[in-house]
C-alpha cells in the first residue's frame, strides 16, 4: 500500500497531516470572526475525524474562508463557489415562494460513496461544507453533528 502510494507520488495519509488552511484576504473582507470559524472547524473535525474535507464558505462571494482536508493539496475554492451558488439559488427560490418566516438550514447531497452536507449559520452569511465517505459515517450522523455545532 505504502509502496503504491509512493509510486503514485503521494504520501500515505497520516492523522497528523491535516491542518487548517486559512484564506486571509477573504477572511478580512468577510468580517466574519476568525475565532468562530476556527472553533466550528475544530469541533467538526473532533467529532468526525474521518472526514474528507470541512470548509467554511461565505454565501455572498462564494469564497472559501478556511478549510481542512485529508486530500493533500486539495483546493476547495471551486467546490465552495459552486455550493455557494446552490445556496443562493435555493434562498432565492424560497424568497420567491409563498413560504414566510423560514430560513434555509441545510442542504444534503448524498452520493453513493460520498456525502456532501451544507449547513448554514443562523445569520445566513456563511455555511459549513462537509464531505465524508459513506463508509465512515452516515447521513443522519453527519447531519446531527453539524446541527449540534451550528444550532
Amino acid at each position: 500500500m505504502n509502496i503504491m502510494a509512493a509510486a503514485n507520488g503521494t504520501r500515505p495519509q497520516r492523522p497528523g497531516s491535516v491542518r487548517l488552511v486559512l484564506n486571509h484576504e477573504a477572511l478580512i473582507a468577510s468580517k466574519i470572526p476568525l475565532v468562530k470559524i476556527e472553533k466550528v472547524i475544530k469541533e467538526v473535525f473532533d467529532q468526525l475525524p474521518a472526514l474528507t474535507t470541512v470548509a467554511v464558505v461565505e454565501v455572498a462571494t462564494g469564497n472559501c474562508l478556511a478549510h481542512l482536508s485529508r486530500r493533500r493539496g486539495f483546493d476547495p475554492a471551486a467546490a465552495a463557489a459552486h455550493h455557494a451558488e446552490t445556496v443562493r439559488q435555493q434562498q432565492q427560490a424560497l424568497a420567491a415562494g409563498p413560504i414566510r418566516g423560514e430560513r434555509l438550514e441545510d442542504i444534503l447531497i448524498p452520493l453513493r460513496k460520498q456525502l456532501s452536507l451544507i449547513r448554514l449559520a443562523k445569520s445566513g452569511q456563511w455555511f459549513v461544507l462537509l464531505t465524508v465517505k459513506t463508509q465512515d459515517t452516515n447521513l443522519a450522523l453527519a447531519r446531527e453533528i453539524l446541527k449540534s455545532i451550528i444550532a
Binding site: 459515517t137 452516515n138 443522519a140 450522523l141 447531519r143 446531527e144
Partner: peptide, 10 residues
C-alpha cells in the same frame, strides 16, 4: 430518538 438512531446506525 433521531440522534440515537444516527449513532446506533454506526
Amino acid at each position: 430518538p433521531e440522534t440515537a438512531a444516527a449513532y446506533n446506525t454506526e
